[in-house]
């Protein structure tokens, strides 16, 4: 995966496949601690207890069609190569939370990527589910919540193309406003 926004799109696919109606995506940049934490939390059916210790094994999957499942193992690899790690918490019938941590300014930390396109595509293709995206940079926060959007939009569906366009622009501007970092600082310096 080229960037974090693609990992997010991929991990959320697991949430959708698990029947989640609400998915919360949180990215927190703790600059003084040189830490970036990515969290995807859902209310899907959860992972069976016996499977939980093996979910990051690429040859473990809940699918019946084939025997590989790469999403979580790729994210774990991306986090570990920059002094971070991956944890998965899950309770059957209640949901799953995936937390990946990265050293913010590590040379190998994947850039943030296009979160606007990721959320736009997720919302447009799954207008019956709810998504929350919170991005924090120290004490500055950007928030997008489809439940709030539904209230305002009334009879206008979330799959409407103007909504996709809104999501992309709103996230791009919102992240700029809070000073979200795309690349590790070391790469910005080298540029």
């Amino acid at each position: 995966m080229r960037d974090l926004s693609m990992h997010v799109l991929d991990i959320v696919q697991n949430s959708l496949a698990a029947g989640s109606t609400e998915v919360e995506i949180r990215i927190h940049e703790h600059l003084p601690e040189d830490l970036l934490v990515l969290e995807v939390k859902d209310n899907g059916r959860g992972i069976p207890k016996e499977m939980l210790p093996r979910v990051t094994d690429p040859f473990i999957t809940s699918r019946q069609t084939r025997e590989v499942g790469l999403g979580l193992s790729l994210l774990k690899e991306a986090a570990e190569r920059c002094s971070g790690g991956l944890e998965v918490y899950s309770e059957e019938g209640r949901g799953t939370t995936v937390v990946a941590s990265f050293r913010h300014d590590h040379f190998d930390r994947a850039p943030l990527g296009d979160m606007g396109e990721t959320l736009g595509v997720l919302i447009a293709a799954n207008p019956d589910r709810d998504f929350l995206y919170e991005h924090r940079v120290d004490d500055r926060t950007y928030l997008l919540d489809t439940r709030q959007m539904r209230q305002i939009l009334g009879s206008v569906g979330l799959e409407d193309p103007t909504v996709l366009d809104f999501v992309r622009r709103d996230i791009e501007m919102g992240l700029k406003k809070i000073g979200a970092a795309s690349f590790p600082k070391i790469l910005e310096v080298l540029k």
């Binding site: 696919q13 999403g71 296009d114 595509v121 193309p161 992309r168």
Partner: peptide, 25 residues
Amino acid sequence: VVGMGTCGIAAGARPVMAAIKEHLA
């Protein structure tokens, strides 16, 4: 229908879906 598995996403399915939605609009 756009394939959005790990393989599809890694190969560029996201901008493809965005382009389809935009062009239809």
